[in-house]
Design a protein around this nucleic acid. Sequence first.
RNA 1: CGGGGCGUAGUUCAGCCCGGUUAGAAUGCCUGGUUUGGGACCAGGAGGCCGCUGGUUCGAAUCCAGCCGCCCCGACCA
Length: 491
Amino acid sequence: MAEKITKRGVNYSEWYNDLVLQSGLAEYAAVRGCMVIKPYGWAIWENMKTVLDAKFKETGHVNASFPLLIPKSFLEQEEGHAEGFAKECAVVTHYRLKTDPDKKGKLKVDEESRLEEELIIRPTSETIIWNCYKGWIQSYRDLPILINQWANVMRWEMRTRLFLRTAEFHWQEGHTAHATSEEAVEETVKMLHVYADFMENYMAVPVIKGVKTANERFAGAIETYCVEGLMQDGKALQCGTSHFLGQNFAKAFDVKFLNREGKQEFAWATSWGVSTRMMGALIMAHSDDDGLVIPPRLAPLHVVIVPIYKTPEQLAAISAIADNLMRELKALQITVKYDDSDQSKPGWKFAEYELRGVPVRIAIGGRDVENGTVEIARRDTKEKSTVKNEQLGLYIKQLLEDIQQNLYNRALQFRENNTHAVDTWDEFKTRIEQGGFVSAHWDGSSETEEKIKEETKATIRCIPLDAVQESGTCVFSGKPSSQRVLFARAY
RNA sequence: CGGGGCGUAGUUCAGCCCGGUUAGAAUGCCUGGUUUGGGACCAGGAGGCCGCUGGUUCGAAUCCAGCCGCCCCGACCA
């Protein structure tokens, strides 16, 4: 099937598109801006979900499901939120079609079925959920509420890109309610760390944890925390966000509770989410000109075994070896596929599994049967080695861990090589042009932030949580600053 | 919403400028055979409302008008 992927060096975004389409992760849907996530892509997303879902539950959260449709009036309740999302909402205005009397076989909207109040296809669920919470919260004893929802949402984006920005996307959204501000902030930060841990230890993508500036903050939030990753083309990608919403939504939906002192108080809120956009991060962080490179901990398939044979007898001998090996690997929770299909030659299979990013390939041929060996090839480095066919299970298990670690180290090294502290405006412009993170002093004003964006297309990705306090002067305005912030061009 | 591109076989595309037999190629698919240590080869076969609607013409994939759709680049966003 797949042929010629555009080289990264030639055109990075074409490379990305080719890769997504040809590796079978997804394809364009018949609907503008929407994508079909194919079984292989969905399998990776399912692995992400499984890990995250377990982490959410370990931290005390439970899952629930809220409606896809939100009454328009709900969205109006919280002013900042409404402004932020109004421009990109799909609106349901009617509930019925009828056959068109003028055009045979065609349907038209039945004007008599107009809804009294329009419904919005959820771009995010704060409003419908806080409307529910009003009924669920009367006392501090009802708090905290720690709920997560796995769902699809819709934002009518002007411009879309596979996984990175589609009109419909899948995500999880946590929505919690707390009795105190401190507790809500603690929750916000806790979930940020859950995300960072996931990105680094499963996706093998190192991330910077930080807070957004006012400009970049979520619509309706008091504070937005984020994890930012760096892609191979030097652009930053926001991988996840966790918001401290203060009492904004409680006030908007009149969610009050009686505290210990018997006084009415508005509840404190957080929301946090990661989406199928992480698929984009996964792809862009590790893959190469030959195809995907998937970290073992998220790979739907860890090992593929390819037989190389000339005669049925040879195939039988190879299959016997493969059977044993598969049993051993499966016992170690390693997923393995034996591709003895005679539809394609070994070379074709090699290329195909490389394209799909399977971490380890084992080839067994006539030579190997004679010598009691197998050939093992790792996807991350493309290294091949011939090893004795003994104790292979543990060897492969270790190899998968090495690959996982190597991918992380490689990505971290890349980020470090592409993160620079600068102190002058000229240096800033040069560095931004070259890509990567630029650490610089900023005077803290939105005006300066806007001007820098206009001139360089760079935005403040975040104010890192671990930023050291040091006095300096803003790289643009020369005004005093107490810490460096992280700039980059971003997706 | 601005700029650009594209719509012809499952897929990628040629043909269109300059209208004229039965609309082509590659690849994929089906049948049979030979192959198999880095995307094999031979032979045969199936597969098309040429995006839609209308117009010009003896005749339209090709010219004209309108419409629809998608992709890419910008502004906006997870």
